[in-house]
Nucleic acid binder design. Structure first.
Lengths: 202, 202
DNA sequence: CCTCCAGGTTAACGAGCGCTAACCATCCTG
DNA sequence: CAGGATGGTTAGCGCTCGTTAACCTGGAGG
């Protein structure tokens, strides 16, 4: 566990606020002055920490994709040997839900602002995303062997859509607690995969 | 059925291209010159058809929400009397899938650029969206009576996320045909709702 | 104590944007 | 055939935005 207790550095403050603002109003809808104001400095002071506005977005998106993939690999390694594929899939779902619930702005950015990146960064992010998807596809096909590969890939993308719906839930603050929401999402994801494979049983 | 065979008007061309461009690069990422070029006229010629760039986005978003709600009401009225709630839910899912598969750019805009609207337009769109959600919630709770209302609402939002994942599917052109995809999404949506209500049966 | 650097500041530049103004062609109508 | 909509055009204004330049300050090191 790499839990941090020390204060966040200025760079991290900026990234966090930039993520929130980008998620709220879109990359082009946020000015550098606003980002600066959000961390108590103003405008061009950001350039002491980042090469430009694009660099902030790039670092955010690469960071997201990397963390998702790293976490998934770790979970696969931890649960893969001892437990069956069902437990691995549950662990993957749990990890993705944790991310979707704890870092909603990043989830929003994840599939929204990818096209604003420089070619090299975008290729890197897409490669990480693709690896993440493929890892899921393999596990899903172990749990549901009757699922063909294209269908499995579609199913994985759709379940991502389901899990990533968290930004739309709390609009009115009406969601029933983090634990209950996580459990609900988990059950729905498993149910969606199950119904994707077998032509339903009821 | 109100199938049109006549040629689309200039206004409709503009709206269609604007939707595609907005979905691809974001509202602020597209210039009026690009929208004009996409329909063969250039730049300020758009102002003969729309009051401004904002007006195009507004008309798109209001149109989307309105069509979704109208279609859902119609399906509820058609299938509501003769068939059971299960058939109504299937019809709602079918309608939403048709929309998600046939109008992907609009699906993308739907939950991405809402905040760029004037206050009045945004309130209108949100009201239509809310009605649409509530309609779904009622039907879902008829099919799954053991589902509490907050959970049902969360489940509906999550299934929207699942169905609206279509823009992410065809990136590499690897999706297995429209019919198969629609059927897969339909089964997954039903499975997700079922697993949302009962704490799973397997 | 002088120096230097990290991390700020404000001023200003240049590009791009939405939008308006002014003008022009085509066509339908009286 | 006059004439006014209709739907284009190009030029250009004004504003915003990302970025750079130039300058300032507090604290650490020799």
């Amino acid at each position: 566990m790499t839990t941090r207790t020390d204060a966040p550095t200025r760079r991290e403050q900026i990234l966090k606020e930039a993520a929130r603002l980008f998620a709220e109003r879109g990359f082009h809808g946020v000015g550098v002055d606003e980002i600066g104001a959000a961390v108590g400095i103003s405008g061009p002071g950001l350039y002491r920490h980042f090469a430009g506005k694009d660099a902030m977005l790039a670092e955010l998106l690469v960071g997201i994709s990397g963390r998702l993939l790293t976490g998934a690999k770790r979970r696969l390694a931890e649960a893969g040997g001892v437990a069956g594929p069902e437990a691995v899939l549950d662990s993957l779902i749990e990890g993705h839900i944790d991310f979707a619930l704890d870092d909603r702005p990043l989830i929003t950015l994840h599939d929204r602002e990818l096209d604003r990146l420089r070619d090299s960064d975008r290729k890197l992010v897409r490669q990480l995303q693709r690896q993440y998807v493929e890892l899921w596809v393999e596990v899903v096909r172990q749990v549901h062997p009757d699922l063909a590969e294209p269908a499995a890939r579609s199913a994985v993308h759709s379940v991502f859509g389901l899990l990533n719906s968290t930004p739309h839930l709390g609009r009115r603050g009406f969601l029933p607690g983090r634990g209950a929401t996580a459990e609900l999402l988990h059950r729905m994801a498993r149910g969606a995969f199950a119904s994707a494979s077998s032509p339903v049983a009821g």
